[in-house]
Amino acid sequence: MISTAKYWVVIVLFLALGFGYSIYNQTLTNNRQIFHSQIVDLNDGYGYQIMKGEKIVILQKFIPGFPGKQKFVTEKEALKTAGLVISKLEDGKSPVLLPSDLAELNISTTVSH
């Protein structure tokens, strides 16, 4: 009986620690989130802009890297592409998107790369 109580105490403590760490971690990443994205509605499609505070740093009216003026078909696709750019910037990497990045995100394009 006593040993099961001890067992539960350990489990609860462990969970509390894990939960606390995840909250702490989240506030840490929130602090790092100096970039955010906004979706640009282009009537027949979508683009995005990457903002640093109030300032536009990248404006993407067309799918990056692709020839011509291919817009994102859905708001969701524009949003997840912008998300990848932001995660690259936050990792201190180049914000460039390669054809493989867009293939991984399953971005719909009318003309192939």
């Binding site: 802009q49 404006l59 990056p64 460039v96 790369h113």
Partner: peptide, 19 residues
């Protein structure tokens, strides 16, 4: 590298163009 970028002088922002 093959990627290609445009810097808008007036707007002070970048866009990634066709590779």
């Amino acid at each position: 590298l093959a990627s290609f970028w445009a810097y808008d002088i007036e707007g002070d922002y970048w866009s990634q163009k066709a590779d």
